[in-house]
Design a protein around this nucleic acid. Sequence first.
DNA 1: TTTAAATTCCACCTAAAGATAGTATTTGAA
DNA 2: TTCAAATACTATCTTTAGGTGGAATTTAAA
Lengths: 123, 123
Amino acid sequence: MLLNATTQYSLKILFYLKEHSEALVSAKVLSERLDIPYKYLTKILTKLTKNEYIESIQGRYGGFRLLNGVHIKVEDIVLMEGDDFRQCIMGNGICKERGKCQLHDSWKEPKKAIIEQLLGHEI
Amino acid sequence: MLLNATTQYSLKILFYLKEHSEALVSAKVLSERLDIPYKYLTKILTKLTKNEYIESIQGRYGGFRLLNGVHIKVEDIVLMEGDDFRQCIMGNGICKERGKCQLHDSWKEPKKAIIEQLLGHEI
DNA sequence: TTTAAATTCCACCTAAAGATAGTATTTGAA
DNA sequence: TTCAAATACTATCTTTAGGTGGAATTTAAA
């Protein structure tokens, strides 16, 4: 699909934390509410923490919350997984007007919409 | 990426055969011209043949060509690999106006452009 | 100071995509 | 009829994404 499972999970986590930004949320609760396998979820949470999108409070009564004052765009999370929708859709690397791939023109508008609407979406 | 390697390979094969529709093209030539691993390429060619997008002529002096009079859209090839860009981008299955995901509105335009411009592109 | 419940760390498992290997079969020109 | 060059078939290997398991560490309430 367009977004892989890990990216979808990451976005769901961030949206949830945004909607509950008054409190700490534990991995246990996130796992249940978002239906993400607990162990896989904690891996993602650690990654989001290290990338400074969220912060973690350790120990009993700990949990996670959005890092104060952070601005996250969907593209940031997509890039975390190494995906890049700005590339040539045929995988040709360089794909400019001269020497363009066969789908170049058909990809132009969708790409523009993806970049502006989807990747530009702020969480 | 948006299209996986197999889909990109398949499209390149079809575009090439379209541009050389006067003659048979062997897997060897396709492999060299399109820079696709020979053995993996033959696997894809067999699949395209069984799906009746191309036809194969066996034996020495054999090769492949587009099936006469066939109409192929990018979406046909994308679906061959089991991808579907019409689904909810967050992986929520049902995602209508009521109970929609957080990216529903931001995904609307890009999806429309992908379906109309890219998937609708005829080879 | 103990302890329950939380995060963190490290190692491993599983499934699917991508790629490779070897052999059998087909075909038509010489 | 031979045989070189092509496709077809079947099995296996490799890499990566997705997912598990278990023990160590941290923390604050009791």
